[in-house]
């Protein structure tokens, strides 16, 4: 099967700083991959690379064998990559409903014409969108907040709404940037369930950046560890847990002595 997303030898430099260096990463359909690493390891930079916010200084990015480099972020979203943000970025003056609705123009044409003419096509499309937005909101238990301003939701609900909004773009790959940040233990448990649920019922691949090791180890099939922009290790959660180089990166020890930590 063709890989969904493929990064080959991707490097990105900001002046003298190499934020990501020679990164290879392959994600297949339906994968649930965690991207972890200490602060400043370049995790969010990888997200920005995939979503087109940054262009790689060298290396190749492709999605289903079609190159992604040179595309604008909104074009990459149209190809099927959606993301959430480390600091929640909802459309703050809109209601919960409109936050999701705003995204729905993506796969259709002739919208300006229909919005001005307001014929039957317009109303059919709008009511289709309304029912699909309602469906999505209900699925994630946000239906009750439908007409409230998005900013009035609780922190956990805002994160959930951001995920719903990303799903509304009908992605093949969902990038979650620290979804558990600022959540309490109950909310994290709920998130754990939610991430699996999304992967299974929407059959999409998920790439997750997260600091919460418990969550990452529980939910991911495969982990990729970054440190100072370099890929340290890749493998199953169990293998990563016992990888001496990873332990050294997190605890700041020399790899040769780190192996004794586990024994």
């Amino acid at each position: 099967m063709k890989p969904l997303l493929k990064l080959e030898h991707c490097t990105i430099r900001f002046g003298g700083l190499t934020a990501v260096s020679d990164l290879d990463l392959t994600i297949h359909h339906g994968d649930l991959v965690g991207l972890i690493g200490p602060n400043g390891a370049g995790k969010t930079t990888v997200f920005n690379l995939i979503t087109g916010v940054y262009q790689p200084s060298s290396g190749q990015l492709s999605m289903e064998d079609r190159p992604l480099s040179g595309l604008y972020p909104h074009q990459i979203t149209a190809r099927g990559v959606a993301r959430t943000f480390q600091n929640i970025r909802l459309f703050h003056s809109m209601t919960v409903f409109d936050n999701v609705r705003a995204v729905f123009h993506l796969h259709r044409h002739g919208d300006v014409r229909h919005a001005l003419w307001r014929g039957t096509t317009f109303f059919r499309r709008e009511s289709q969108i309304t029912s699909r937005v309602n469906e999505l909101l209900d699925l994630f238990h946000l239906g009750g907040f439908r007409d409230q301003p998005a900013t009035s939701l609780s922190y956990g609900d805002q994160r959930r709404l951001e995920i719903v909004r990303a799903l509304a773009t009908q992605p093949k790959l969902l990038l979650l940037d620290e979804p558990a940040a600022g959540m309490n233990a109950t909310e994290k448990l709920e998130l754990n369930r939610l991430i699996r649920h999304i992967r299974d019922s929407f059959s999409i691949a998920i790439l997750l950046v997260e600091h919460d090791m418990q969550l990452v180890m529980d939910v991911c099939d495969r982990l990729v560890v970054l440190d100072h922009g370099v890929k340290l290790a890749e493998g199953s959660p169990l293998a990563i847990r016992h990888n001496p180089a990873v332990i050294a990166a997190y605890l700041g020890q020399d790899p040769s002595t780190a192996s004794t930590l586990n024994t």
Binding site: V53, Y72, H74, T77, R83, F91, V103, H105, F122
Partner: peptide, 27 residues
């Protein structure tokens, strides 16, 4: 008419948060 349609939510999305708008497929 433009603004009060699904298409028109894009104008407000751009005003609210340009980065989020482009990440959601709005140019």
């Amino acid at each position: 008419g433009l603004v009060q349609s699904t298409y028109g939510r894009g104008f407000i999305a751009v005003r609210d948060d340009e980065i989020a708008a482009s990440a959601m497929g709005i140019s």
